[in-house]
């Protein structure tokens, strides 16, 4: 089995936090692999898995468009590379997004995850919250969900599995090898979600 390589898209947002959570997951699982911060097409081409971190989806999208990263990421995901999108990353993966207050905004999206997103779904920063989340379908019964100006999924396509809901809103989904959460596991000490992702990448390799 070859050494796996997982990338953290390092355009904007909390890259380091995901980098460290992924490193910790690999070492805890005893998996031989590397974690790299990626930005360019060449770096993205090398990957076995990609994490798109939290940040501002408009910025991550626009800047990924500039250097051709967006097209390369889309190509890799369509050919089966596992990807994990967090908050802004979830929005970036989606096919359609709309802001709760402002409405439809033109922003570059990867259009690989068959969901519609409501941005800033729980309100502004003052409404940001921590709450307990359950993700039974992947065997995580309790997880501290950190929601920061978080989006939610307002509609799902037929291939999309719902992993978690909070207050009737969909906050975690899976479609094939695509994982997405509206909350930030990288801001907690709990690496169970990152571990599931690393395992998925490792199993496919």
């Amino acid at each position: 089995m070859s050494k796996i390589q997982i990338g953290i898209l390092a355009v904007q947002g909390d890259v380091t936090e995901n980098f460290l959570a992924t490193m910790a997951s690999m070492s805890e699982l005893g998996i031989d692999g590397t974690v790299v911060q990626v930005k360019t097409i060449e770096q993205i081409s090398e990957l076995d898995g990609l994490i798109i971190p939290g940040g501002e989806s408009t910025v991550i999208g626009q800047m990924s468009l500039v250097n051709g990263g967006l097209k390369k990421i889309k190509e890799k995901i369509e050919s089966g590379m596992p990807v994990f999108g967090i908050c802004a990353g979830m929005i970036f993966l989606s096919k359609n997004s709309k802001d709760k207050v402002v409405g439809k905004v033109e922003q570059p999206l990867l259009d690989v995850l068959d969901v519609k997103i409501e941005r800033n779904s729980f309100g502004r920063q003052k409404d940001s919250f921590e709450a307990n989340i359950s993700m039974e379908p992947i065997g995580i019964s309790s997880f501290n969900g950190v929601f920061i100006r978080a989006p939610s999924v307002s509609e799902t396509g037929s291939d999309v599995e719902i992993l978690a809901k909070f207050n009737e809103k969909i906050v975690a989904v899976k479609q094939g090898n695509i994982f997405a959460t509206a909350f930030h596991p990288e801001l907690t000490r709990d690496i169970s979600l990152h571990k599931s992702f690393v395992k998925l990448v490792d199993n496919l390799n």
Binding site: A10, V11, Q12, G13, D14, V15, T16, E17, G54, G55, E56, V59, C87, A88, Q125, K126, D127, S128, F129, E130, V146, I148, R149, H184, L187, T188
Partner: peptide
């Protein structure tokens, strides 16, 4: 709401911006 994780975490989302 308003924990250090949420307040500092918000700033983390602005990084490289």
């Amino acid at each position: 709401r308003g924990t250090s994780t949420l307040k500092r975490g918000f700033a983390h989302m602005l990084k490289n911006g």
